[in-house]
Design a protein around this nucleic acid. Structure first.
Lengths: 358, 358
DNA sequence: TGCCCTTATCGAATCGATTCGATCCGATTC
DNA sequence: GAATCGGATCGAATCGATTCGATAAGGGCA
């Protein structure tokens, strides 16, 4: 009696075929009645939708649809950190925002692929139409190659250029050089650097030539090089990430010795710079009178008021958008070109000439 | 000549069948040679993998695999905001972290479904094995129902309970009541509230009975109720989100009139509380001597030092983990039960008795 | 009336793998 | 030496939809 009223076995979800049968139309017509692009009379569509409602059918199975269509409606976002760490960084959030804005026409979701070591299997096995690599190191080359073989469009932001990956880069080096020159023009000579992590395994440490040589993190290395272009032997400290607290710890270290105290600190991110300023406050060092501080990124740091950080404003949302647009274009068969973005110097109130020598 | 050396038409990706043909084995054996659970001799497996390498085959197509297996290896995360806003909230990040930790055994990726108004189609059309709703309002009921019809396990954190959704809740009301009682015990009588958004459409405004009545945001409403249990007619201000800057703006408004100034402020999140403290600093009001401030969440607010916020520490990571575990269990056919989490009172140095009346 | 063209519907092939049950073969056991 | 056993391999069905080309029915035009 219930041979067609509610599918075969109880508990089994109804399929499009079941709906079609109940509506008395063919399989293909039923398909058309849902999203399809094809002529269907209003009466028929209504009949199909009614049948669907009666059978409690929730619409075509996305899995089957994506197999047949060859599109899954998913764009992968690969980050080389734990989710929590990755998205505490406002720059990454801004990227994500621009990205999701630009891929809106795809009607796609963003699949978060946090590369937590062993589980890089996800990356190769997830069904996605395209992928964005955010700040990824060459360590992922293998996974990336697998995606590439699969013909998946790949876009990288802030990463080591790799084969077949469209890279959207930033003028990390020249921008940092510009800000360093600003400091030199003000008269600074003893400058220190608070750096982003140089490698995937993070630890706090004084900046040493060895550490610098072994670094794999593109962004940090380029910004370091930019600073070195102007202050070749500035000392510094490597942090474990772009957080205020990290900047504070690094600065306390760098400012500890009153005799060898730098007059300016180049922080590789605004969050780090904010931490440097906090540390200076704690130590009773006036910013900018006794210590100039510059950052990088141009993100509004929540609660830094009344300081207006001198920094390099990078077009993060725009970078994300560009990556998104590139993906849309590639999926449409186009061949977008890589773009290089430039940061804009923002003069705030955290830099000034160094204090006169005693 | 290239009838089998590299698939049919140039540009077409090779399929498992092509690999099998080239390796001289059957379709099914080739499948087994990849991840499969079944006996394959080492020699055969090697032959298949070699053929794959030669054809530049990147492994089984995830789309086909997920159709056949009935699992897509994707867990959806639904938030009712833009990505950027959602994840500026450290609590949500912590949830996400706990979640991704707990679902590790599934080897699944997290599909971000930001509900940006019109595009709620994503939610219904994405192929996922389970979904987590984070802070979602009843507005999504329709989409949720669609998922439910599809038989997808659903878990909600911080949301309105809905049919067929397993809810992991927090003692928002009683915890807030506890902290309010702490303030009353200290002698406070003029207390104000800085509230999270009450509705999806956000705007800054004085808290009014109308606004309260129309609210749809579970968390905000419950915390409000908890405060009202102790201070029935406390005034307040509604913000547009859990950000330091929002707390600052709200507090400037609430502290503007020196004659009607509250002696304590209950902020509905730690970030808001941090903003309140900043505002007090700006206005020259001493915390806690002249103004007590309490928060909610127990997140380390970057850069709040030297204040140690009196707050309610909620087990955010643990909530995420619980949701993840529930999903794993449901996918294995189990029937986990809903859990209610409790927050822990943390006494910091931001509360004190009110100043003596002049 | 006859012809052509459009619109609505249908059948069947297809997307690319997984998996169940059957078959085959060499090795062990009595 | 025959019966049995178990591991390796194969065929074929299946997952659930989409889509192309074909067919049929109706409408307009000559």
């Amino acid at each position: 009696m219930n041979d067609e009223s509610n599918g075969r076995s109880p508990g089994a979800r109804p399929t499009l075929a079941a709906v079609a049968r109940r509506a008395g139309v063919s399989n293909s017509t039923a398909s058309l009645a849902f999203g399809g692009a094809g002529p269907v009379s209003d009466a028929t569509r209504e009949r199909v939708l009614t049948a669907a409602r009666e059978l409690n059918y929730a619409g075509p199975d996305p899995r089957a649809r994506s197999l047949r269509r060859g599109r899954s409606g998913i764009v992968g976002v690969v980050v080389e950190e734990r989710v929590r760490d990755a998205f505490r960084d406002p720059i990454k959030l801004a990227l994500l925002d621009g990205l999701s804005e630009a891929i809106a026409p795809l009607d796609a979701g963003l699949l978060l692929l946090a590369d937590t070591g062993a589980a890089s299997a996800h990356i190769e096995d997830a069904s996605m139409d395209a992928a964005v690599l955010i700040g990824c190191s060459p360590r992922l080359d293998e996974s990336v190659a697998a995606l590439w073989r699969r013909g998946i469009p790949l876009v990288a932001i802030e990463g080591e250029p790799a084969d077949g990956v469209l890279v959207f880069s930033l003028d990390n080096r020249s921008a940092t050089r510009a800000v360093a020159e600003h400091l030199r023009a003000l008269g600074h000579e003893r400058v220190a650097i608070v750096a982003l992590p140089l490698e995937r395994v993070r630890r706090r440490a004084r900046l040493t030539p060895e550490l610098e040589a072994e670094g794999t993190s593109n962004t940090a290395i380029e910004r370091l090089a930019g600073a070195r272009d102007v202050f070749p032997d500035a000392g510094g400290f490597v942090t474990t990430g772009s957080f205020v607290e990290e900047g504070r710890l690094a600065a306390r270290e760098l400012l500890a010795d009153p005799d060898a105290r730098p007059t300016a600190i180049i922080a590789q991110s605004d969050l780090l710079a904010a931490g440097v300023i906090r540390a200076a406050e704690e130590l009773g060092i006036a910013v900018p009178a006794e210590l100039s501080v510059v950052g990088f990124d141009g993100v509004r740091v929540d609660g830094l008021w009344p300081y207006d950080l001198t920094t390099l404003v990078q077009p993060a949302v725009e970078k994300g958008r560009a990556a998104g647009r590139a993906i849309v274009e590639m999926l449409a068969g186009g061949h977008p070109v890589a773009l290089a973005f430039t940061s804009e110097f923002h003069l705030g109130n955290t830099t000034a000439p160094p204090p006169p020598l005693p």
